[in-house]
């Protein structure tokens, strides 16, 4: 009986990947809003993690994020991703203005593979995620203003042995010139550990 209850609350690798991707979805949308990349009219509030988070209502952005994060989920389960980078670049000059790195570490032995489970309570994970999202929202206070028209892209740093899916391409790693970075809090599901770092152009 006790074992059954235990199993019920345990998180497997797929579930952990889901949590990570959910976090990324909310985090990226929040960044897009907070950094003013798109008009605020195109966002609507959603309640999650005990916060109200602004999510884009633009269909193209939604589609882009769901495809990318869907693919990411597969790779997360197979332990193939090291890092996800949200690159914000000037539309005209293509200069990289800002980069948000979501570094992923895998906890436990690699041999456990896809059978590993985590006993960490979901509530605690959500609280950790909430803290990171709060930090993202407050980052406007120190990040420089993006004065030019900017676009964003998601780059996924994978291991060498990954098969390139259709409609995916190898990208040039984007580096910010004269960069300064700030590390946010990290959260862990006991399977995946996610660390968020923002790198921005230092003007002065």
């Amino acid at each position: 009986m006790a074992a059954a209850v235990k199993n019920k609350s345990a998180i497997n690798v797929k579930g952990s990947a889901n949590i990570v991707c959910d976090y990324l979805n909310y985090g990226i949308n929040s960044i897009l809003f907070q950094r003013g990349l798109y008009p605020p009219e195109n966002f609507s509030t959603t309640e999650n993690y005990g916060l109200s988070i602004l999510m884009s209502t633009d269909n193209k952005i939604k589609e882009f994020l769901s495809t990318t994060l869907g693919q990411l989920k597969e790779w997360l389960v197979k332990r193939m991703v090291n890092k996800v980078a949200l690159v914000i670049a000037n539309v005209k000059t293509l200069e990289v203005m800002e980069r948000w790195d979501f570094n992923i570490e895998y906890e436990g032995n690699a041999e456990d593979g896809e059978t590993r489970t985590s006993e960490k309570p979901l509530k605690q994970i959500k609280n950790e995620i909430r803290d990171v999202l709060k930090q993202i929202a407050s980052s406007v206070a120190y990040l420089p203003l993006l004065e030019c028209l900017c676009s964003f892209d998601l780059q996924i740093y994978t291991t060498n042995d990954v098969d390139l899916p259709e409609e995916w391409a190898v990208a040039e790693p984007a580096n910010v010139r004269n960069a300064q970075s700030v590390k946010m809090r990290s959260f862990s599901t006991n399977i995946h550990k996610m660390e968020t770092v923002v790198t921005y152009k230092n003007d002065d």
Binding site: D153, Y157, A169, E172
Partner: peptide, 25 residues
């Protein structure tokens, strides 16, 4: 980056429409 590849989805998300100004200004 010897052991990693950088991949991105080829169909990019569109930028905000021309003439849009950052409201954070």
């Amino acid at each position: 980056h010897c052991n990693q590849r950088v991949l991105s989805y080829a169909k990019k998300a569109p930028a905000a429409s021309e003439g849009f100004q950052n409201p954070m200004r």
